[in-house]
Design a protein around this nucleic acid. Structure first.
Lengths: 218, 218
DNA sequence: TAGATTGTTAATCGATTAACAATC
DNA sequence: TAGATTGTTAATCGATTAACAATC
């Protein structure tokens, strides 16, 4: 253990890991035994250089003249991402999005275990969702503490988002996945990932426009 | 019109536009009249240099010694993003996620108009959602054509995603926003944005792990 | 062994930051 | 006018690509 070459992995590289994992998973399903960096990179639409450079952050997984054993590399990447561990999570906000996330089957498949859903609306409290009840948001802090919850999903309106995040931080949560359309502030030791859906739609909007310029521009 | 300095804007810059827009919107709400690049950058947690460099791709919006008029810059960025136009969209897949997206109020607020929701499940077809009915996926291609739909949201299981995207492309859609956990292939003239939620969760998983190394590592 | 392909170092490219002359 | 702050050029930093010796 340790010394597996851990020297602060750049975020761009981390973000590509799930993609590697997905494509390798596909190869595993197709019962492909070996793959070269070139072949895998072509499938993924990246360069073989980048693929090898990326893997280089974590160790040596291939064999000269042969390539990579698909099954092995798949398992290794899974381990690097941390999928061999179990993470417990809670969702705050049982509106449309919160409910959709609670029911998203792909999460449970890997070791992400939904432990509870919270809302402020008395009408929702007590209702069952997936395999856990919707609880009052008053109970959030104690719940996170007693259940050692790792990840908190924020799916509340933007006005409430910072408050919910503060409570999570207070309770000692490790990471927050924010779906509210604001930039939440958390102390540096807490991991924060924002899912700004409206922002994405604006990127699409810009690019559609830009398309117009291009045509006209020549 | 034109010649407003359009020379292929880098993707990193495009992705920051909605963030500028959000923070400026907040300042507008707070009735702040002017802001300097330094102040705005501090709020956003970026450098003033980057902010000025970014704006420089689109024109000159400030005034030396004064800064930027908040109201004006807000409107300008909105225009650059393309929010003055209306875009029509359809959602394919009326499962939990599709329904949540259909009900997401923040979309409608800007000019994104939901024109239809489609599903393959006969039980869902005919049900009302927001202000449009769920239609049979058979009708998708014709619907996109006749209604000149700009953006297609893919919210179906991964096995069905590529097929749905193909139909959309066939029908002449401009952009696809994909929520299925696969990399869809589209011709280069079609804009594609992926929302790989499971990938995001894996990034969180990696970073929680990494946190463990750090502590132990010193 | 010869051919293939890795791991890794060096070269290139692009994005961020620093600096400052122009000017309100 | 003097002070502030922009727009923009130059310097730095980081990420991607190219190249190749090591080796299976």
């Amino acid at each position: 253990m340790r010394d597996t070459k851990e020297a602060r992995v750049p975020m761009v590289v981390i973000k590509r890991l799930p993609k590697y994992f997905r494509y390798l998973g596909e190869l595993v399903e197709r019962k492909v035994e070996r793959v070269s960096s070139q072949t895998l990179a072509d499938m993924m639409g990246i360069s073989a250089s980048q693929l090898r450079q990326d893997l280089n952050h974590f160790g040596e997984f291939g064999q000269q003249g042969y390539g990579y054993r698909v099954e092995d590399l798949y398992r290794e990447i899974g381990r690097i991402i941390g999928l061999e561990q179990e993470y417990s999570l809670v969702i705050v906000g049982a509106g449309n999005l919160g409910q959709a996330l609670a029911n998203y089957p792909n999460f449970g498949k890997r070791g992400f275990v939904l432990r509870g859903v919270f809302d402020i609306n008395p009408k929702l409290i007590g209702l069952g969702l997936r395999n856990c009840d919707i609880m009052d948001i008053d109970k959030l802090e104690a719940f996170i503490r007693t259940n050692n919850v790792d990840i908190g999903i924020v799916a509340v309106p933007k006005e409430a988002a910072q408050g919910v995040a503060d409570t999570m931080v207070q309770a000692g949560i490790k990471a927050i996945w924010n779906f509210a359309p604001v930039d939440i502030k958390v102390p540096p030791e807490v991991i924060l990932e924002n899912e700004h859906l409206a922002d994405r739609l604006m990127v699409i909007s810009f690019r559609i426009q830009e398309l117009g310029f291009e045509e006209e521009g020549d």
